[in-house]
Deep mutational scan, measured.
Amino acid sequence: CHSECLGNCSQPDDPTKCVACRNFYLDGRCVETCPPPYYHFQDWRCVNFSFCQDLHHKCKNSRRQGCHQYVIHNNKCIPECPSGYTMNSSNLLCTPCLGPCPKVCHLLEGEKTIDSVTSAQELRGCTVINGSLIINIRGGNNLAAELEANLGLIEEISGYLKIRRSYALVSLSFFRKLRLIRGETLEIGNYSFYALDNQNLRQLWDWSKHNLTITQGKLFFHYNPKLCLSEIHKMEEVSGTKGRQERNDIALKTNGDQASCENELLKFSYIRTSFDKILLRWEPYWPPDFRDLLGFMLFYKEAPYQNVTEFDGQDACGSNSWTVVDIDPPLRSNDPKSQNHPGWLMRGLKPWTQYAIFVKTLVTFSDERRTYGAKSDIIYVQTDATNPSVPLDPISVSNSSSQIILKWKPPSDPNGNITHYLVFWERQAEDSELFELDYCLKGLKLPSRTWSPPFESEDSQKHNQSEYEDSAGECCSCPKTDSQILKELEESSFRKTFEDYLHNVVFVPRKT
């Protein structure tokens, strides 16, 4: 048989008469490798580009789960590009990614509803959504962080984005990388972005840091009482949809009607710091009717980097990364020049730590249904340095008659930039024990000054392991946590139920 035959053949030295091919099969003959313009397919066939392209389009058009959109890589027609490569849609070739590779997620039936953290986790790592997304989240724990972890990498949506009755959302900033909504599939009414009845939605994105392009379709905003109209108009300008909307697409009466839409800028007039305090004062603000001013709200939190936005980490279910302080308005003076500047002394802060701070007014709604208010920009203030805590785990070892090696770990709280350490030492008198000992005694162990690591005695271990207080009263049991108490109650309830079950099964009433 021919060298490319495997198993047997019907005619000697003829690659077209093989029972099976050793390498690849091409047009009725066995070959060692697939010549151009053919590609290896499933490690035994040679196919042309049209064959591989037909497989790709067949799966793409069917949208069946589990099928493969075949691509070409290293002269092979394979189910998908290997790690580190992405497909070129024009020629199906796998090309190296520039940075992290995109991950295209194809949605069944063309859309997916995100109504819980669990459903959001199914899209973790996706960068391109081939379909439409509907966000409908009523509640949950730590929602802002969970949504950002699972949806934060999405850069492109081919269909539309719909935010509907998501009472738990305060902001859409968890879509931190969303840059493009194509609108290839539109919501009824030709809408590519749809926001309806979101009672706590206050911000779409921080438009000073976020760009969003909507290729096709219109915007729809109705019944978002805490979303200011200025935020919607800003989205029109940034996304390129200005002029597409009709009169009733953006409701003037049901958007922002319960919001404090600040239209003035508060400026800080005085800032002073110490290692654990920050004193702030800002310019006074009074609405047209000074009785509408209820006070100020001061927001602050630790910020290692200057990239904080107002609604980071917030949701309507209680999660809030900001510390909020309510401040009463100052006494009002008739003389504008003698107006008191409101302020606040922030206490209990960490030394040498940068804080993000902003302040906003708290006002009631005027009778004319106009909203007044003022808010400052987010500023960054760093507390002063102070003395560091003591170095940890000092170790001293003498390696000769004239040297001592000293080692330690950095302090747990540096409280500033540590530039150097101060080492103090003092000579001590020799131990009298060394002169009084009889060095001729056998088995004498000389006193040693070398360091030995501390260890816990058996008594201390027994005390720590004991669940009861000892007789001397030195140790006591740790208080039980809520989960331990709940577990004990469940076990007790189970024992009672099981005992009742045994009584009912074992003891049967005697027939009379």
Results as ranks from 00 to 15, higher is better:
E156I: 10
K360A: 02
P330E: 04
K407G: 03
D312R: 10
I357S: 03
L153I: 10
W207C: 07
W286L: 06
I327F: 03
I137T: 12
K226H: 14
L133N: 01
K360T: 02
W344T: 14
N136H: 09
F299W: 10
L212Y: 04
V381A: 04
L151P: 01
I379D: 01
R244V: 11
I404Q: 15
S319Q: 04
N263M: 02
N141P: 11
V238Y: 13
T371P: 04
D257G: 00
L186F: 10
R247F: 12
D257I: 03
A144G: 12
S319L: 09
W207A: 11
N130A: 10
Q354M: 00
D384H: 09
Q245N: 09
D335E: 15
A144P: 06
I157R: 03
K409E: 06
I163H: 00
G373C: 00
L133G: 01
L229D: 11
V170G: 11
L229M: 05
W286T: 03
I232V: 04
L298T: 04
I154C: 03
N150F: 08
I278S: 02
Y372N: 05
L349N: 01
L294D: 06
P329Y: 00
A374D: 02
T353G: 01
Q382R: 07
W207E: 06
W322I: 13
L108W: 15
K209I: 15
L406V: 11
F220V: 13
I181H: 00
V381Q: 11
M297W: 06
L178K: 02
Y305I: 14
Q306L: 10
S338L: 14
K409C: 10
P330M: 04
K234M: 15
Q245I: 09
L201R: 02
T323N: 14
N141L: 05
S158C: 13
P342T: 09
G131P: 02
E146Q: 04
W352A: 08
I163S: 03
L201H: 01
D335N: 07
S401D: 09
I157G: 02
S333I: 07
T118R: 12
V324A: 10
Y191R: 07
D249K: 14
S132R: 01
R179E: 11
S402W: 06
R369I: 07
K409D: 04
K103F: 03
L252T: 09
N320D: 00
R244L: 13
V390P: 15
L392K: 11
Y194F: 14
G373H: 02
L298N: 04
R347E: 04
K162G: 11
G243F: 13
I154A: 10
I378C: 05
T273R: 10
E264P: 03
Q245G: 08
E184F: 12
P410S: 15
V397Q: 12
G313F: 07
A374R: 01
K112G: 06
F220G: 15
K407P: 00
F311W: 15
